[in-house]
Design a protein around this nucleic acid. Structure first.
Lengths: 193, 193
DNA sequence: ACTCGCCTATCTATCACTAGATAGGCGTCA
DNA sequence: TGACGCCTATCTAGTGATAGATAGGCGAGT
């Protein structure tokens, strides 16, 4: 009946989970093989090298994340509400088996991975900066965000703080800190001058 | 002559550097041994296990960091200036061979390390939160920081943002982003109501 | 309709290498 | 003479990767 998850999809799903939980150097082809129920050579059949596998996972993640953020735009919410919803993605990710942003993990592992991976990670960050800056700019033009905020700069701040909060919230086992961090920044974008 | 760096100190120094650059799973006893100029068994002579080694590195790092932050307090600077100087520690660390905060790296590797390590990492974070909150509270009482800031909450925000910015600045090869992030937050603590 | 050729997906078995860890020895210096 | 500091040698367990085999499906040509 249902559940037509192919072996390849299962490999990608589990690899993503492992990277988000343990990082690039924290899992092996055998871990993956055991989890999926095949032999490690079968993973090599789909992905010649670990780099190839991680590039595939990261590309899929980037697409999926962009699809998720684009959905936040459709309703006619204020910029502050969109930013809050964006932060909820981070909190939900952490609450899903203590996962960290895939690209944050890979960024920590930058010195261990090949350029094909770092390129994909950098592209993800660029995507997010651009998307956040557009949300902020829109808020300013609608008058719901202070006019002295610089969209490109606040995008870096907001994203940095969420990534950092995610890591700390995992260490301290306190996902609510992500909201605490997001809400303080959002308040600051609205406080009257 | 000079340079009395003992083998043990060299081991700790290099282990710290490797953790900050590659994370817990990104270096081996052999890497360390080659770098110091001894055999890997000699490292086991000082530290029975990798866990023991990392606990020692982390404890030393925590002490050293506290010593550095306590020095920022002595002069009669405004809270904003102290917070700026604090952010400079993060920028300098990144500029020193692209190192990330040791505890941020270990927090990313939480699922790979034993409790003895995570305890030390959590203690470091608690130290920093406490120190930052005291600086902020002092700024409020001196009237240089807005009274509607909550020290404990802003400490989490400020620290999260710096840790996140550090990781992103490394990935994007742009240490100045750390200052950009810090300055935006400091501005927000001072903007008139 | 049959079969030939090729593809897909997986297996077993193994490669060379690296991981952390351990046992025991040897020289130096107090 | 005994502890310290470091060595050689080795172990067990795993690493990513590769070779070669196999079972079954699918499509084209006769």
């Amino acid at each position: 009946m249902t559940s037509k998850a192919t072996t390849q999809d299962q490999i990608l799903d589990l690899a993503q989970q492992y990277i988000q939980q343990r990082g690039y150097n924290g899992f092996s082809f055998r871990d993956l093989a055991n989890g999926v129920g095949v032999k490690s050579s079968s993973i090599h059949y789909y992905y010649a090298s670990k780099t190839d596998l991680v590039v595939a996972v990261t590309g899929r993640y980037r697409k999926g994340f962009s699809a998720a953020t684009d959905q936040l735009k459709v309703n006619n919410l204020t910029a502050a509400d969109v930013l809050k919803a964006y932060a909820q993605i981070f909190k939900s990710t952490l609450e899903d088996n203590k996962r960290i942003c895939l690209c944050a993990m890979l960024a920590s592992d930058f010195d261990s991975v090949e350029a094909a991976v770092t390129d994909e990670v950098k592209a993800f960050f660029a995507d997010q900066y651009k998307w956040l800056a557009s949300i902020i700019a829109s808020g300013i033009s609608h008058g719901t965000i202070r006019g002295d905020i610089v969209p490109d700069e606040f995008a870096v701040l907001y994203f940095s703080a969420l990534e950092g909060a995610m890591m700390l919230a995992k260490a301290n086992d306190n996902p609510a800190d992500i909201e605490l961090v997001a809400n303080q920044m959002i308040t600051m974008t609205q406080r009257a001058a």
